[in-house]
Structure formats: structure tokens, C-alpha cells
């Protein structure tokens, strides 16, 4: 139990650093910015208590919000990552219900390809990525003014985030049979 906690805590730190130090500094285009850090919340075990998922989502998002955005970064809206990630954590059980496989979920498993297959994982990640990115860019802009640009940003960034998560799912070391 303590072991699991420490493992996830280290993973939390690593995901955070990868996001703020690597992904946030890559300049693809003004329209695209992948947010891989949500992977941490997406693959938390099924039986993680809801309050813990919400709190870790809040802390992770707030951490991204607090990190300086580099020289080019326009002033970020403080709290936008926290808000979007908390929403993601809240929606997670709902999305599970929407795309529940025939025989339901086993509490002792992880939401990943090993237990529920690629089709399930791909749609699971895509839905939550879209929800997260839509909330994120809405909180950033606080307006529906240039809605088509906003939707384009959501779509392009979501595709990139989704792609990186899939890539990681393919290359990640050591298949974990079960957690803990």
C-alpha cells in the first residue's frame, strides 16, 4: 500500500516535470500544445478513492498553472489547468459508465490496454482529453468569441495529447499485471 503510494507520487513528479520542462517548451504552432500530464489521472486505478483523484488532479493542475510559462508565454490564467483537470477527474467515472464493457470493470484492475483492450482505451482517452482540453481553452479565453479558432485548438491539441498517450502506452516499460 505504502509502496503503491510512493510509486504514484514519483510518477506524479515525473509527469509534472515532463509537462512543464519538455512539452510546454516545444513550439509546434500557436494552435497546438499537448498536455500529456492528464495521463496520470487517466490511468489511476479503478479503486482509488474519489476524493484522492480529485485532490491529486487539483494539485497537478495547480502545479502546471504555477510554473512560469517561459519567455514567449502570455500571462496564463491562474487556475485553468486546475479547473480543467478537476473536471476531468470528476468525469472519469461517468465516462467509464458510458463505455462500460459487457462484463463491467474489475476493481482490482487498471484502466489501460492490458485489461480492457485498445479500442476501449483509445475511446476512453479521446473522450476525456476532449473534455479536458475544451474546459482548459474555455477557461483560458473566458469567451466564445472566436469559437471556431477555439474548437480548432481543442481538436488539434487533443489529437496530439491523445497521440502521445497512445505512444507511451505502446513503449512503456514493464507490463504491470496488477497494481500494488
Amino acid at each position: 500500500m505504502i509502496n503503491t503510494f510512493i510509486r504514484y507520487f514519483i510518477r506524479f513528479i515525473l509527469v509534472y516535470l515532463f509537462q512543464v520542462l519538455v512539452l510546454n517548451n516545444m513550439q509546434y504552432s500557436g494552435l497546438i500544445n499537448p498536455y500529456f500530464y492528464i495521463w496520470f489521472i487517466l490511468v489511476l486505478p479503478f479503486e482509488t478513492p474519489g476524493w484522492l483523484v480529485l485532490v491529486s488532479a487539483f494539485l497537478l493542475g495547480l502545479g502546471i498553472d504555477l510554473f512560469p510559462q517561459g519567455i514567449s508565454g502570455a500571462a496564463p490564467s491562474m487556475g485553468m489547468h486546475a479547473g480543467a483537470t478537476v473536471l476531468l477527474a470528476f468525469m472519469r467515472p461517468m465516462v467509464w459508465r458510458w463505455i462500460s464493457p459487457g462484463d463491467g470493470y474489475d476493481p482490482k484492475t487498471l484502466p489501460d490496454t492490458h485489461f480492457y483492450g485498445w479500442i476501449w482505451f483509445m475511446s476512453y482517452v479521446m473522450m476525456l482529453t476532449l473534455i479536458h482540453h475544451l474546459a482548459l481553452f474555455l477557461l483560458e479565453d473566458f469567451s466564445f468569441h472566436r469559437l471556431h479558432i477555439l474548437l480548432l485548438r481543442v481538436l488539434l491539441s487533443a489529437i496530439f495529447t491523445w497521440g502521445i498517450i497512445m505512444l507511451w502506452e505502446i513503449i512503456k516499460p514493464g507490463k504491470q499485471r496488477k497494481y500494488g
Binding site: 487539483f58 498553472d65 490564467s77 491562474m78 487556475g79 485553468m80 486546475a82 479547473g83 478537476v86 473536471l87 477557461l139 473566458f142
Partner: peptide, 8 residues
């Protein structure tokens, strides 16, 4: 989310 809105 209320905390986030206050922050924002």
C-alpha cells in the same frame, strides 16, 4: 472548482 473560479 469554486476555488479555481476564485483563483481565476
Amino acid at each position: 472548482e469554486i476555488i479555481v473560479l476564485i483563483l481565476l
